[in-house]
């Protein structure tokens, strides 16, 4: 096992940040921690990268215990924190050289690992890191986390606040790194990114809601989900919520996702109800569940 977490708990004053968390990540796996801000993802990263000590439980990374093997872990993992943590006053190139030097290596030695990412920011190599755009900062941070050829990569919300285009590119980069044999633990609040992981843990309020492959998590979803659309989306939401057998009502882009608690649900009845209340252009059709549906069902 690349990463092994056993019954880890951590509290800060009154807040239980992690509550009996256990999971394992296999070598070469791309494992996602999926959950909103405040779920405990960062606390878990800090424990696994030996920056924070858990109250209870144990964890190991590449066979090294997070307490006894602290130095070994620090030498063999790359960590990209959620908050931009490079030196703002150093240039792109200086930051990279700095991180290589600390790990007693050179940029040239491991350039093959970062090449296809670095070429995208190379035109700005003399720019101070603080003056880079969000997308470029993220690429530089990834290069700096990779430059000592880590066995495991910890990425804490690398795509938060990043636009869809850069997010897609970033995930393509992760897939290529995975092919080079690097184990990756990545966290994200974007549910659509979960589908790109081998396995995921859904996490909220310090607890794991489920661990499985994205396909399995979606397959376990109990309710039939209906895409519902009508002329006035705001009114539609209110009306669906007031429908006597409604189970859940969530806006989902162009549609509202509706599930019903009754076994005898008929689309025609719902259609008639909405039409009776003045809605027009009503569409109701079954739709497959997504990770986000599964997450909301488990979190509720």
């Amino acid at each position: 096992m690349s990463i092994s977490v056993r019954n880890i708990s951590k509290s800060f004053k009154k807040v239980q940040a992690l509550d009996q968390i256990s999971f394992e990540v296999a070598q070469g796996e791309l494992f996602g921690l999926i959950g909103p801000d405040g779920a405990g993802k960062t606390t878990l990263f800090r424990i696994l990268t030996t920056l924070l000590v858990a109250d209870e439980g144990s964890a190991s990374v590449f066979g090294f215990d997070v307490i006894d093997g602290m130095n070994d872990i620090r030498n063999s993992v790359g960590y990209m924190p959620g908050k931009f943590s490079l030196y703002q006053d150093l240039t792109v190139e200086e930051n990279l050289t700095f991180f290589a030097t600390i790990f007693d290596t050179t940029v040239a030695e491991n350039y093959h690992l970062i090449e296809d990412i670095y070429v995208q920011i190379e035109p700005f190599k003399n720019r101070r890191a603080g003056a880079l755009s969000g997308g470029m900062k993220q690429k530089l941070a990834l290069c700096c986390a990779l430059i000592h050829q880590p066995k495991v990569l910890f990425l804490d919300e690398p795509t938060t606040g990043v636009d869809p285009v850069s997010r897609k590119e970033f995930w393509e980069m992760l897939k290529r790194l995975q092919q080079k044999g690097i184990t990756i633990l990545v966290s994200t609040p974007y549910m659509d990114e979960a589908a790109l992981c081998d396995r995921i843990a859904l996490i909220q309020d310090g607890k794991i809601l489920d661990i499985n492959s994205p396909e399995e998590i979606v397959a376990k979803h109990q309710h039939v989900i209906y895409d519902v659309k009508a002329s006035n989306p705001h009114q539609l939401i209110s009306l669906l919520k007031a429908y006597p057998t409604a189970h859940s009502v969530y806006p989902f882009g162009e549609y509202v996702h509706y599930t019903d608690q009754s076994g005898e649900f008929k689309q025609e009845d719902l259609h008639a109800y909405l039409a009776h209340n003045g809605l027009k252009e009503i569409v109701i059709q079954p739709t497959p569940a997504t990770i986000e549906d599964a997450f909301m069902e488990l979190a509720n």
Binding site: P189, M191, Q204, H234, I237, Y250, P251, M296
Partner: peptide
């Protein structure tokens, strides 16, 4: 300006219901 970044999926939707209401 990016009011819902990092917010959990349920709260994110409640937030949009507030937006709809204000717009109405």
């Amino acid at each position: 300006d990016e009011p819902t970044g990092g917010v959990d999926p349920i709260t994110r939707r409640q937030f949009w219901e507030m937006i709809y209401k204000a717009a109405d």
